[in-house]
Nucleic acid binder design. Structure first.
Length: 818
DNA sequence: TACCCGCATGGTT
DNA sequence: TAACCATGCGGGT
């Protein structure tokens, strides 16, 4: 199908009758090394990616490509839609999705044969956007990549996977183009489907109905049951540009949206966060043994509102318009959705007018969400079961969720075990997450499972926005202990141990390596080794102690032991040995962060207030709790932020903490307090050394041996605060706290942002008398008042954490700040 | 008073 | 900067 070179004056595209201009535009590189010379139109189209980009070893240039579905002819068929997906037709293409995905190297690939040599319109192209020429690339992707749709973007970037046209899946018109060919859309724009707005469909049905009834707003999503949805390739600018080009045409707008709305622009592709990341395994789980085919549509991480009592699940607009039946009235229509267990739910799919736009919601989802035991941060997935056309709602629990690209491309889960649809509800399945043994769920502070702990999570209406990015999820899921375990010193760097409040932290001079958690041990020969667990088979393999390992490690990467470089190889460890190993590992890890009891007790003696403040779930034994409680984040906070605001739930939520509690909140409060003091001392020392303005500084910067309460009250609180302080926590207590700092002076607060050191240092603004910057304010207030920052305290910008909080705590706002 | 409903607001992308 | 969307909020029941 390769196109022979055109006559010199003709466009290289043999399908094109245009003459190329005197100054032809360049197309693809020819075998000769030169470039195809194209007419303007074809060049434009080429640049827009309309033509096959896949390298076909046996063909050159421009052609109708069965493999990628692109065409030599810059035209589109009039009918892009899935003709009544009759079972017969489906039989002709028995491409059960999981089979398909399992048989090819690319998860989203569809069977090329499905598309014949039709000329798909790129935007409505039924093909997956990620394509690899099967003729040459079938082995380019490792099998396991099939289960890592996340990697697509990366692969795209790497160029190992080509991105096909977008939108089509959004449109659901992932049509099987079987009949019509060569109808040139460009030549016959009127071929486009009807533009009229389709009345609401009473019941969500098979896509074809939409297609055939021309509701083209993408509500044809049911079509193309054989295919997994095409994650919108926003990463591929080339195609994106292409898409934009098309979308910007009025016709396209209508085709895509099914309603003559002019606001459809280039953002019609789903945001990456909504790309379905459902794995084949999950699909298999949903489809079971039936012959049904699952078409993943999109997924969404539940917000607090979604998971709250309101029972409204906000649907991403694009997703709603692409995959759900069109609705013209705000009342919408009832939508039957089947969950992974097979239960059928009926939601009201509707929208609210919003800023000249629409806000789509599913109403009445509470029972379903509760049934799935979903919480904010968990992910619901929407798929379509074909040929029934049934909507399927799956889910992934947050702790097992594949982070979305936009959220975290670093890894899949804490330990790389992806959640399974429908699995999370089964507590037994949760142990899977812990199979690595690294994150033992019964280890102190290792309760990464959000689900059970979050049953009482405070996701009510009063909560401010809860955004849980994947990074945040990790933050929530990981205890410090776990995080420490994940961090490895950079090569050739030995970590130094920082002791903070009796807790040892490894500190790295260079950026630490986020690596696979391993278990270090000594083999029989006394040689230090480490054990690492294969992500795929979960077997433990022995590797050299100094081997940096990726966070996702499989047996195949066991280059040190070829005999065990395959998952089929037996595990070297006996189950007993493994058990011992894991036990010792966990206990060692636990010890690492476990404070010496006496010391902690002493340090905490004055922390009644702290104990009373804390709001995270109290562990009966006072051991470390996870931060899995939903927290209200500063909108400006970034993933990884561990400030007190971000790691604790809103005020008044959850039981109070014990004095000896070592949860993250308490630890952070203590640590920040300590840091504050250290900084003050340091600053003071420096100033003393400078020997200038000492007297004045003494007023501003209390001497280290002054009482803390004096510090605090002097820093930014009114005298009344002092009274409160005296009541809630004695001076003596506070002094004790401070005294407990002494062994750690000069240590580093892991959360300090060096660039903000000055800003946050109490003495940095001595001139104004505003001594303490927000975070410290919050910390101090927290410590002194015995109140957790309330919602109101949580200044989104984090720049006045004490203000209203103090007021709420019956303490006048800090005069120094205001 | 609690809940529902619908819209408005404003932060985020 | 506009669109999106999470959530707040007021009115109604």
């Amino acid at each position: 199908m390769s196109a022979p070179p055109a006559p010199s004056k003709s466009c290289y595209n043999s399908h094109c009758t245009e003459l190329r201009p005197d100054r032809p535009r360049k197309g693809w590189r020819l075998r000769t090394g030169e470039f195809a010379e194209l007419c303007d139109r074809c060049a434009s189209l080429y640049e827009e990616g309309r033509f096959c980009e896949t390298f076909h070893s046996k063909a050159s240039g421009w052609r109708d490509c069965e493999s990628c579905g692109k065409t030599a002819s810059p035209a589109w068929p009039a009918s892009l839609f899935f003709h009544a997906s009759s079972p017969d037709r489906l039989k002709d293409h028995p491409v059960k999705l999981n089979q398909l995905a399992g048989s090819g190297p690319v998860p989203w690939r569809q069977a090329p044969s499905l598309f014949n040599s039709c000329i798909p319109r790129p935007e409505l192209h039924p093909r997956s956007p990620y394509e690899v020429d099967g003729s040459i690339n079938t082995d380019r992707l490792l099998p396991r990549e099939r289960y890592a749709p996340l990697d697509f973007s990366e692969r795209l970037m790497n160029g190992s996977v080509k991105q096909g046209p977008i939108e089509k899946y959004e449109n659901g018109h992932a049509a099987l183009r079987t009949e019509e060919h060569q109808s040139c859309f460009m030549n016959n724009p009127q071929h486009s489907v009807s533009l009229k707005e389709e009345p609401s469909t009473p019941q969500f049905g098979l896509a074809t109905s939409y297609a055939l009834t021309n509701e083209t707003n993408g509500h044809l999503g049911v079509a193309g049951p054989q295919f997994r949805p095409a994650p919108p390739p926003t990463l591929a600018k080339h195609f994106y540009g292409n898409m934009l080009h098309e979308i910007n045409s009025p016709v396209e707008n209508q085709i895509r949206n099914g309603r003559p709305r002019g606001d459809v622009r280039g953002k019609n592709q789903l945001l990456p966060r909504y790309w379905p990341r459902i794995t084949d395994q999950e699909l298999q789980q949903i489809s079971g043994d039936s012959n049904s085919v699952i078409t993943p549509l999109f997924e969404k991480m539940l917000s607090a509102s979604d998971a709250g009592k309101v029972g409204r699940l906000v649907l991403p607009k694009k997703c709603a318009e692409a995959y759900f039946p069109p609705i013209s009235q705000p009342e919408g229509l009832p939508l039957k959705v089947q969950d992974a267990k097979g239960s059928e739910w009926t939601f009201q799919f509707r929208f609210w007018p919003n800023n000249n736009s629409r806000m789509y919601v599913l109403e009445g989802v509470t029972p379903c969400i509760q049934s799935m035991q979903l919480q904010a941060g968990d992910i619901v997935t929407f798929s379509r079961l074909e040929p029934e056309g049934k909507l399927i709602m799956g889910f992934r629990k947050a702790s097992a969720a594949l982070p979305s690209d936009q959220e975290n491309e670093a890894g899949k889960t804490v330990n790389g075990v992806p959640g399974q649809v429908g699995e999370a509800a089964d507590p037994s399945s949760w142990s899977k997450v812990d199979k690595s043994g690294y994150v033992a769920k019964d280890a102190p502070g290792a309760k990464i499972s959000l689900s059970r702990k979050r049953k009482n999570s405070t996701l009510g209406l009063k909560n401010k926005r809860l955004r849980i990015d994947s990074e945040d999820l990790i933050e929530l899921k990981l205890t410090w202990e776990e995080a420490q375990g994940l961090l490895r010193p950079p090569p050739d760097h030995a970590p130094s141990i920082v002791v903070i409040e009796g807790f040892e932290f490894e500190e790295y001079e260079d950026a630490p390596v986020l690596g696979k958690p391993t278990i270090f041990a000594t083999d029989n020969g006394g040689e230090k080794i480490q054990w690492v667990q294969c992500e795929d088979c979960l077997k433990w393999r022995k590797v050299p102690v100094d081997s940096p390992l990726p966070s996702k490690w499989t047996c195949a990467e066991n280059k040190w032991d070829p005999e065990r470089s395959s998952c089929s190889a037996a595990q070297e460890l006996t189950s007993e040995e493994l058990e011992d190993l894991l036990r010792s590992s966990n206990s060692a890890a636990s010890k690492k962060l476990k404070a010496p009891k006496e010391e902690t007790a002493e340090a905490l003696e004055g922390l009644d207030t702290l104990a009373n403040l804390a709001i995270l779930g109290e562990e009966g034994d006072g051991t470390q709790t996870s931060s899995s409680q939903a927290t209200t984040k500063h909108p400006r906070h970034r993933p990884g932020c561990s400030c007190i605001v971000c790691i604790q739930p809103p005020s008044g939520k959850g039981p109070k903490h014990k004095q000896t509690c070592t949860c993250n909140v308490c630890l952070t409060v203590k640590r920040r307090f300590k840091t504050l003091m250290m900084r003050r001392e340091k600053r003071q020392s420096e100033k003393e050394a400078e020997g200038s303005g000492k007297k004045q500084q003494d007023q501003v910067m209390p001497m280290p041996d002054k009482s803390l309460e004096e510090d605090l009250s002097q820093s930014n609180s009114s005298p009344s605060l002092r009274k409160v302080t005296g009541h809630e926590g004695s001076d003596e207590d506070l002094n004790k706290m401070k005294t407990s700092d002494s062994p750690f002076r000069g240590q580093i607060d892991l959360n300090i942002q060096p660039e903000r050191e000055d800003e946050m240092s109490p003495g940095s603004d001595s001139g104004s008398g505003t001594l303490i910057k927000p975070l410290d304010d919050a910390t101090e207030g927290y410590l002194v008042q015995g109140f957790p920052p309330s919602d109101e305290n949580r200044n989104p910008s984090g720049d006045n954490a004490t203000g209203s909080g103090h007021q709420e705590a019956k303490v006048p706002p800090p005069s120094a700040n205001g």
